[in-house]
Write a protein that binds this DNA or RNA. Sequence first.
DNA 1: GTAAAAAACTAATAAGTGTTAGTTTTGGAA
DNA 2: TTCCAAAACTAACACTTATTAGTTTTTTAC
Lengths: 197, 197
Amino acid sequence: MAKIIPGKSGSKKDVITLKASTLFRKKGFSATSMRDIAESIGVEAPSLYNHIQSKNEILKDICFRIARLFMGYLEEVESGTQSNLSKTESIIRFHISLMTEEYESVYIADHEWKHLPEPFLSDFKNQRRNYRSRLAAILQKGIDDKEISKVNSHVAVLTILSAISGMESWQRSGKKIDAKLLEEDMIKILIEGLRNK
Amino acid sequence: MAKIIPGKSGSKKDVITLKASTLFRKKGFSATSMRDIAESIGVEAPSLYNHIQSKNEILKDICFRIARLFMGYLEEVESGTQSNLSKTESIIRFHISLMTEEYESVYIADHEWKHLPEPFLSDFKNQRRNYRSRLAAILQKGIDDKEISKVNSHVAVLTILSAISGMESWQRSGKKIDAKLLEEDMIKILIEGLRNK
DNA sequence: GTAAAAAACTAATAAGTGTTAGTTTTGGAA
DNA sequence: TTCCAAAACTAACACTTATTAGTTTTTTAC
């Protein structure tokens, strides 16, 4: 009866992914059923299978799209010529902006990836590890140049990424704080915390 | 056949809660079945109901115990006479130490509370909000005293709590970094990021 | 050693899971 | 109008879910 109408979002698969993202973020991947997703679109559950292969595929698509975005930007920054502290700031800003623009997907890639089936789980974890150690390498260079204060670079990466990832709890909570202010204050705390004095 | 043997942990209910915590953290609350919990103890699922009321009760116990610990420490600090930056540091240190000592439970209280059934969900969210705004109040006083740099206090709270909450991903990853080093470096970044210059 | 209480067991329930099969409806092109 | 493919539908599958009922085993207390 009802029909999946692709909006500006693109294909019907995209509509499903979008609606599923909202639910995965709100209730978690495991607690979200295919019937939940179908209902939020206004369709019966089996109809979804005309457009997707499985529930897992939706999760996989979300996680790897986000991973690709982050990895792409990291590569851009790596080949740049700015100082390492400034490279770090660029990456933090990218994380924050992606978090504000696509926080449902970013949240899922951050918190629900553990439900990926193999071999995607291993692949994702590798990409994650790779990303973090390359970010740590940038920080380490900054530390060696005495531009960044002497801390364990992996701890610094952890601190940065976690701080940003927690933005989602603000995103949900009704935007009492202006997005730009949030970004600037968070940058201030993190960058001043890292800067060598 | 097998029997639930209460170790040093206390009652049999405590054993169940402990084993459940490990699974809830590893697989998530929804993806963990009562059979999973039972198996990890070496017992059949229905036997668990001699000691607990429901799966939800386990989650409730975990979340509220952690909430009580944090709230208790906050009250202690609030009534202290140290500077506000130093109060903040105490609280950060408490968070970090609880995270290293009881990271499974802390992780669950941090990430799985959304699966609490009403009215516990509302109660928990209220406590959470209350805790955060009281922590923000401490920071605000520090800002007014020009001891802490001028940032939005709620953003600062968010940054601090999220940074610490991310420690769990290190906890899991095989402790390559020494716990004390992690604590000191994280404190360094956060406190130097907050200190007024 | 025996009685009572605690805690395990098996069997079963009703509801929910992702997904498939087979069928009907829909929308666009000829 | 007719035809065809896309995409919806209903019915059903095999399985898993939390939990209950009823029973047997184990532990505790005397």
